[in-house]
């Protein structure tokens, strides 16, 4: 019973954590734009939180570089199960235009497992919302936490 209730509320009101790896800000402001009046995902109960321990979904924008990959792994590890990771923008997918730069490791999936890829440079808010909805599918089917 309680398990069902938690499961249901998680799907109906997922909380997001946004981390900017080394994005150019293009995708970041589009993520923020999703939260503001025109797109307004808060009407679905989606809230942007600053604390990884409260978050269900991790939005990552930008390429991973040598320094922030540790921060990213750290944030991912601090999130409770079940969790979904959504990579936003060409850079987060593969490194994009920066893939050959010397300080760039590559896409987000080189460091943490990614569930949904949202392409675009920058990704449009509609696409980001779509990505989050796809990410919820994973949370829906996710079984009990592997470890508590």
């Amino acid at each position: 019973m309680l398990k069902n209730l938690i499961q249901k509320s998680r799907i109906k009101s997922p909380w997001l954590l946004h981390y900017d790896c080394s994005s150019c800000n293009g995708c970041d402001i589009e993520v923020l734009a999703c939260l503001t009046p025109v797109y307004d995902i808060e009407r679905f109960g989606i809230i942007n939180v600053g604390n990884p321990k409260h978050a269900d979904i991790l939005l990552v924008t930008g390429t991973v570089n040598q320094r922030n990959k540790k921060v990213l792994v750290n944030l991912f590890d601090q999130m409770p199960h079940p969790k979904a990771v959504i990579a936003i923008g060409s850079c987060a997918l593969s490194g994009g235009i920066f893939r050959e730069a010397y300080n760039v490791v590559g896409g987000v999936d080189k460091v943490i497992p990614v569930d949904v890829y949202v392409p675009g440079c920058p990704a449009k808010p509609e696409a980001i919302i779509d990505g989050v909805v796809l990410g919820l599918e994973k949370l829906k089917t996710a079984s009990l936490p592997a470890r508590l």
Binding site: C21, S22, C24, N68, E100, A101
Partner: peptide, 27 residues
């Protein structure tokens, strides 16, 4: 945390292509 080293991409892209790179210094 955001350092990519894109000034050095000038070695790989020609001066027309660099426009697309410098646009992505800051979105």
């Amino acid at each position: 945390f955001v350092h990519r080293g894109l000034e050095r991409l000038a070695d790989l892209r020609d001066f027309h292509q660099m426009i697309q790179v410098v646009e992505r210094v800051c979105g």
